[in-house]
Design a protein around this nucleic acid. Structure first.
Lengths: 208, 208
DNA sequence: ACTTAACGTATCCACTTGGATACTTATCGT
DNA sequence: ACGATAAGTATCCAAGTGGATACGTTAAGT
């Protein structure tokens, strides 16, 4: 089984990957993919689908697990790399956007489903966003990257930033010529969020 | 013809509205709607579609015009109302979110398509976001709502805010119980953006 | 070598689809 | 009243769909 995966992914993985490719390319959700369309894209007979999944929603759950798994692993890696960067915001922005570019289908589908109906991928993405935001709070606090900011203000900032990162990742994937500008704008946004929440905190403190 | 519209919308309008309903409900894009599905939802024979549109993309263009027209009209109204508000940010947030709630299908589809492939609605939404952002700059400058901020920093803020407003509108539509919290969070985001860009501007000024 | 399980393919079928074409209805203009 | 036009319905057809069922292939275990 491990040997087979090294040579050619199994039917199940091929179907999952085909689903991402189709959904990304067509701007549709996984739930509206056709069985035969999917099988054609995976290079399989359409009945093979039922060897691995009972329903399209089943496939959605597998895809959601894929999204969450890959994203969380990437974020860990990005955090490690960015911690060695002179400016953490710039480091995170660069590594994240480059990773998104290299995993375009998965990111594209994940971000699109973030605004969809209650699909498995949407739920997975919501959890991912929340987890990234809260772990970012812990990292920023432990490294004293934004001195003086309170945890709830910080969480508001990291949540907005996480969401915005995914949104900008779509543009980064689509517009090769504007990548530098998109990255710079993302860094600007991140800084504005921290400074803005800090300023709001001070305003609230002086009026209380 | 005018009499007919007053009593029951014509076939064309019924098809457009049906398209929004289906896309919003199913989390799909207009481009992937089925002809008969659409006709059923509109209460018409499926061939009636061809009386009004040559292709589904044609319908997409009509829908895009609808989105842009209604959104821009609503924004004008919201600006008038909010200008009479003690705090403009709170006023804009309230009026906008309530309008979104009352036009849920159109907003839902519009925001979803903002992250889609190059569909007519996506293009229309991108123009709407840009227009709202630039007009907000003009209004804020003329009313001196954020004294001292430079126009390019202000545009960055209004662009982020406009996008975030649409994103939060989806949650506002979906989660009646959390509406108060969502509105407050949106207001917080708006203020943080202005203050953050102002702070960044000062930082850049002192380091130059 | 034989058996079993997992995976993949082929065939069939009832149903649905998009689009062509013919027909019907309602409205408007002369 | 009549004719033209716009809008809507009905019928037909070829192609495609999802799912049931049978068959084929491969790998692993005894």
């Amino acid at each position: 089984m491990e040997t087979a995966s090294a040579i050619q992914p199994g039917g199940k993985q091929r179907l999952i990957e085909a689903a991402f490719r189709l959904a990304a390319r067509n701007g549709t959700s996984l739930a509206s993919l056709g069985l035969r369309e999917l099988a054609r894209e995976a290079g399989l007979n359409h009945n093979t689908f039922y060897r691995h999944f009972a329903t399209l929603e089943d496939l959605g759950h597998a895809a959601a697990a894929e999204v969450a798994g890959q994203l969380m692993a990437a974020i860990k890696e990005i955090r490690r790399n960015a911690a060695r960067h002179a400016d953490a915001s710039v480091g995170v922005a660069e590594y994240f956007l480059d990773w998104a570019r290299d995993n375009a289908d998965l990111v594209t589908v994940g971000v699109r489903e973030l605004h969809s109906t209650e699909t498995p991928i949407r739920k997975a993405m919501q959890r991912v966003v929340h987890e990234i935001a809260t772990e970012s709070v812990e990292q920023i606090v432990s490294m004293r990257l934004v001195p003086g900011i309170e945890p709830d203000a910080l969480l508001r900032a990291t949540t907005s930033i996480t969401h915005y990162m995914f949104y900008r990742a779509l543009d980064y994937i689509e517009r090769p010529r504007q990548r530098r500008a998109i990255r710079d704008e993302l860094v600007n946004f991140m800084r504005a969020q921290f400074l803005g929440q800090l300023a709001l905190q001070r305003t609230t403190a002086t009026s209380a």
